[in-house]
């Protein structure tokens, strides 16, 4: 569904490429995580996958990038809207400001795509239901909590039924409750609609819980690509400045202090950790 071949991108006036020689594939219907320290190129990669690079942010690019069989560089943002969805950090900046109700806000994308009115009504109702916003349909988008606003931002993209959904740290400004709401929605989405999802995220525990695969980016290069259990417990990620989950850290310290562990792999989530320490012997 997403395919990069030796893809590189350099912002104008920069010597170093922001993305360098990236090659990977994301199969349809998979939930992928993207981790890396600040400045690793995560946002740039998200912008490239959504076509904002090169159509909104200019620069020099090489290699190829296709999403949903579309060659991004040869397409236009108008054509990509509806096929590739993009959600980013600040929910406030994603609200159009031109609609006075949550319903109206969700409908905006479909209106721009020229979808017939009856179909808009059906899709908006379904999406509001799915996003848990059905009771807030007539509320002003600005009268919602942060978590609700981010769900609205996601709903406004989901309603267009994109084949691919790119999320750039969508929970970084949310509290744990808001974060859980967003992940529950994404999980449901992948299960029901087979949407391909790629999410840049600092909260590794969430990635461990929900993703099929994790990509690690550092200085614009792909360092690792594999299942969360392997990638997120690899000491390599700590070396580049990504903090492992507290369960992984606790298990590492336990081993360092002489706790004999039966399992080779380190735990990522609370549940993993419980099983892990149950099996441990002093």
């Amino acid at each position: 569904m997403i395919r990069l071949e030796r893809f590189s991108f350099t912002y104008p006036g920069e010597d170093q490429p922001a993305l360098s020689d990236l090659s990977f594939e994301v199969p349809a219907g998979q939930f992928y995580g993207l981790v890396g320290p600040n400045g690793a190129g995560k946002s740039t990669l998200c912008y490239a996958l959504a076509g904002m690079i090169p159509h909104y942010f200019k620069g020099t690019l090489s290699g190829s990038l296709t999403v949903a069989e579309i060659d991004i560089a040869q397409s236009s943002l108008g054509e990509l809207a509806g096929t590739i969805g993009l959600v980013f950090q600040n929910p406030f900046n994603q609200i159009s400001g031109s609609r006075f109700s949550v319903r109206g806000e969700v409908a905006l994308g479909l209106e721009n795509l020229g979808v017939p009115r009856d179909q808009i009504t059906d899709q908006v109702d379904e999406t509001l239901e799915q996003s848990g916003l059905a009771d807030l349909g007539e509320r002003s988008p600005f009268a919602l909590s942060g978590g609700q606003q981010q769900r609205l931002a996601i709903a406004s993209i989901l309603v267009m039924q994109p084949a691919v959904l790119i999320l750039d740290e969508p929970t970084s400004q949310l509290d744990p409750v808001g974060t859980s709401e967003v992940y529950a929605l994404l999980h449901q989405l992948v299960g029901q609609h087979e949407t391909t999802v790629l999410i840049a995220e600092h909260k590794l525990e969430r990635l461990a819980e929900f993703t099929d695969n994790v990509l690690v980016l550092n200085q614009g290069r792909l360092l690792a690509n594999g299942p969360p259990k392997t990638v997120l417990t690899d000491p390599l990620i700590e070396e580049i400045g990504v903090q492992p989950t507290r369960y992984t850290q606790a298990a590492r310290q336990a081993r360092a202090r002489g706790l004999i562990l039966k399992k080779d792999e380190f735990p990522l989530t609370l549940q993993d950790a419980q099983e892990f320490f149950d099996d441990a012997a002093v």
């Binding site: 943002l77 809207a81 993009l86 900046n93 994308g109 020229g114 979808v115 808009i120």
Partner: peptide
């Protein structure tokens, strides 16, 4: 914030060519 706002609108087809519809009649 301008860039983010513009990108959010682009992602929802704001500048797309072609006919548009409306939820409200």
């Amino acid at each position: 914030e301008l860039d983010e706002r513009a990108i959010a609108l682009e992602a929802r087809g704001f500048t797309r060519a072609g006919p548009r519809t409306s939820l409200t009649t």
